[in-house]
Design a protein around this nucleic acid. Structure first.
Lengths: 187, 187
DNA sequence: GCATTTTCACCTAGGTGTCAAGTT
DNA sequence: AACTTGACACCTAGGTGAAAATGC
């Protein structure tokens, strides 16, 4: 980034495919369950600090912890609307705020999109995999009430706050992000 | 404001005089109690939305509810440091962000200061006037635990949230703003 | 039968005045 | 004697998963 230039940072979510899924408990895996439900164009979440200078963005870690998901098609809070039981790819966009008069003309060249495929997930209104539930209980401070053992007893790197991705997708009251591949090791 | 120009909004607090005060309970008034304690230059509080376009500032009410006061001279949180039992005048400044290269040269003409004398107050670490305490208990939602009657029973215009000034000066752990003239009708 | 919503106890985080204890 | 601090109970506000209720 140019420290002196203005940038907007934003995220959006695009469908990974045109399918609807269901979770097979016996095999602990997601199965295709038909064609995707119709969806509206999809909202965009601007990082609340936008626009800001490059220097400001680079000064510290950028967190999208104000981003919230919902399955409510009539949502009035500007949350990102997703379809439950569908797969999504989060995208991260950096937009250069062009100071030139006819900046609209250069819109195509003034942004860059970053996609991290490992962040793909299936939207849910309730966790389908019990190990995810346990992971959240062990790692999310707000779920301490459900812990029955010390979180320090968890395997390495599972300290509270060590899950920026899941935390960033904290539900706005459904749906919530659920890792796409639980890797099928659970009952 | 020019809707397209950038502005910084900030507040600071200047001593009203060079005196130290004490509260006389019997007369319910502030009395001079000597010369002011020495003080460091004094901090400035930038509105966290700064800088922003004139259009943005004018779009809605601007609230300085993140501004906090402290009497801790070693404060490390960027709070405004005040001396307890001293009188202060809050000031509001609007600074035009000059896009010209040698903007420093025009610093003197690029800001405007607003002073509302009715906002003068005496800094305290605890309320000196019992009626102020009762007013806070009746009007501040966080003090509901101390209410012993319905806040609706209070005289007109004393609904919760109807006290933007006092709320804006919510303590960061002392001191707190105390109206300078309780008008001497108590006790 | 499965998915979703609602309600709930239990948390985090932090803003209140009170009161006892400390400081000057 | 006057002022300040710290522990405290009591709030607001809102994020958790569990379980019950509801929907489809």
């Amino acid at each position: 980034m140019d420290p002196m230039a203005d940038y907007m940072l934003l995220m959006d979510f695009v469908p990974v495919d045109d399918k609807r899924y269901r979770y097979a408990f016996h095999s602990s895996s997601w199965l295709v369950a038909g064609k995707a439900d119709p969806a509206t164009p999809g909202r965009v979440h601007y990082h609340p600090d936008s626009p800001a200078k490059g220097a400001q963005w680079m000064k510290q870690i950028v967190s999208f912890d104000k981003l919230k998901l919902t399955n409510n098609l009539l949502d009035d809070n500007g949350h990102i609307i997703l379809n439950s039981m569908h797969r999504y790819q989060p995208r991260f966009h950096v937009v250069y705020v062009d100071p030139r008069k006819d900046s609209e003309k250069y819109a195509e060249e003034n942004f860059k999109t970053f996609v991290f495929e490992e962040t793909r997930f299936t939207a849910v209104t309730a966790y389908q995999n019990h190990r995810i539930t346990q992971l959240k209980i062990a790692s999310n401070p707000f779920a301490k009430g459900f812990r029955d053992c010390d979180p320090e007893d968890w395997p390495r790197n599972h300290r509270p706050g060590a899950l920026p991705l899941m935390s960033a997708f904290a539900r706005s009251r459904n749906p919530v992000a659920s890792p796409t591949q639980p890797s099928g090791t659970e009952k």
